[in-house]
């Protein structure tokens, strides 16, 4: 899967889980940019992404991403 496709799918998941169709993700997006993205919805996002891409993140990975770009990078290595 191409990187931009992965980003688009992750964006769909964000919109669905956070119930906000206006969310637009870029590599630079962080939790500060999206109101509904807090530590609780973060868990939901991770579980939803894990299910959608059929991957399992490690606890270290979950805590390590500083922005969407890093999350996508991580997903790219796992789905490659």
């Amino acid at each position: 899967m191409e990187r931009n496709e992965v980003l688009a799918r992750v964006q769909d998941i964000f919109r669905d889980v956070l119930d906000d169709d206006e969310i637009v993700l870029s590599d630079a997006t962080t939790a500060d940019d999206i109101d509904e993205w807090d530590s609780l919805s973060h868990i939901q996002l991770i579980v939803a992404i894990e299910k959608a891409f059929k991957v399992k993140f490690t606890s270290k990975e979950i805590l390590s991403w500083k922005n969407i770009g890093e999350l996508i990078d991580c997903l790219m290595t796992r789905t490659a």
């Binding site: 868990i43 579980v47 993140f57 490690t58 606890s59 979950i62 805590l63």
Partner: peptide, 16 residues
């Protein structure tokens, strides 16, 4: 139980 979620969050019950 989801071990990786628990480790980062103290949440003991999986979302499912």
């Amino acid at each position: 139980f989801d071990a990786s979620i628990y480790t980062g969050t103290e949440m003991i019950l999986s979302l499912d």
